[in-house]
Amino acid sequence: MGQRLSVIVVEKDRARALLIVDGLRDAGDFDVMVIAEETGLARRIAQRNPDLVLIDAGNPSRDVLEELALATGPNERPVAMFVDQSDGSLTKAAIEAGMSAYVVDGLRADRIKPILDAAIARFHMLQKMRIELQETRRALEERKSIDRAKGILMRARGIGEEEAYALLRKTAMDQGRKLADVASALVLAADLLK
């Protein structure tokens, strides 16, 4: 029973993989391996014969792992998808964190839980970082189209920057729309008229 649990993390991005591995190391002494390559994924995992596989729920290669869950050969260890385990709250937490786990059947729940708790915490962190990145990008895009819309108005109507901005804001308020939406509509229309 004292054997170290072996865990495979399927993750292409090196930085993300390291974060997850670090999280698992903090939680206990596990034998952790990262697979970055998606080619021959099922074969690589089968060779290693891990107790647990962790994969981003957003990874299309997740369907490859479903096949492992169906293994029925006499020498194959059955693998269960974590989503089917009886611990409902843990399952839900994992799905919300965007993580899927494949656990070898018969592994005691108290041995799995600390790993999954640590992994879920890390996936949460990664998800938060991803959302922040998206929001930053969107804000930047919005800024860009507002700047372009201002420029279009300044040229077309011969007005100053402040006046152009006020006009955009007034239009947005009158129409009950977001400033960025009005700006991008104007940019689109101007592109069409070119």
């Binding site: 957003g58 990874n59 299309p60 369907d63 989503v83 799905i95």
Partner: peptide, 15 residues
């Protein structure tokens, strides 16, 4: 959904 397994889970847990 990025995969069929993910879609099945989304439906199963009520997302």
């Amino acid at each position: 959904a990025p995969s069929w397994a993910a879609l099945r889970d989304m439906l199963a847990v009520g997302q």
